[in-house]
């Protein structure tokens, strides 16, 4: 994916990156996180950092006794492999608008998307993910406003083409806006080019957050 890494101004939060690393995010959020990281070395480095923390958690956690033949069974597995090893080919990076993880879900690049109009000139395409959150592609014609809306849960919006601005700031290619229920905004697509976004929200299935009181002093919730 060729793009200027310096233009990205709005990044993932540490909470999202930690959840991605721990493997506890809903699939739709994982998709947005993986797509943003494909475009952003800053967040890629932070992802590796939270992976390192996960490694240390695993390193320190209680060990479990293995079955007595565990190593022998695993060695048998890998010896069997070596006999019919296949060279692994890595997929080449994409030259289109969508980074590789998004192409997997969209069934191709931008030209493969089957848009449905949802009013006001705005179109969307729902991407199939597991329950817990939903993901969609949005196309907002240049200069068009999306009607103001609030959020019941967390909403992630990643810009893939063009730009939009709202009460908070301008969001260009690669930028991600993380909106929560406090936020009411009216995004407007910038003139010049249709704005294409990947958005995910967990609103329909939002569970009440049970943050332990004890966590608050040092987690700054």
């Amino acid at each position: 994916m060729k793009m200027d890494m310096n233009v990205i101004k709005h990044h993932l939060t540490d909470a999202l990156l930690m959840g991605y690393s721990a493997g506890t995010l809903p699939e739709a959020f994982n998709l947005v996180v993986a797509t943003h990281i494909s475009l952003c070395d800053e967040c890629r480095a932070q992802m590796h950092t939270f992976d390192a923390l996960g490694g240390e958690v695993m390193e320190m956690s209680e060990i479990a006794a293995l079955s007595p033949d565990s190593l022998m069974v695993t060695l048998a597995l890998i010896r069997q492999d070596s006999a019919d090893a296949v060279p692994i080919c890595k997929p080449a990076p994409s030259n289109g608008i969508f980074p590789a993880p998004l192409r997997d879900y969209a069934g191709g690049d931008l030209d493969a998307v089957k848009w449905r109009k949802i009013g006001g000139g705005v179109s969307q395409a729902i991407l199939k993910t597991d329950k817990g959150a939903s993901a969609r592609l949005l196309r907002i014609p240049a200069g068009t406003a999306v009607p103001g809306h609030g959020h019941r849960g967390t909403e992630l919006t990643l810009v893939l083409q063009g730009a939009f601005y709202d009460e908070a700031d301008r969001f260009g290619k690669g930028d991600i806006e993380v909106a929560n229920e406090d936020m009411v905004h009216t995004p407007i697509a910038e003139e010049g080019m249709d704005c294409i976004c990947l958005a995910a929200t967990d609103a329909p299935l939002r569970f009440s957050a049970l943050i332990p009181r004890i966590a608050q002093p040092f987690l700054r919730i």
Partner: peptide
């Protein structure tokens, strides 16, 4: 859950 993780 992801909303309970603070990241700090």
């Amino acid at each position: 859950t992801h909303s309970e993780i603070a990241g700090e």
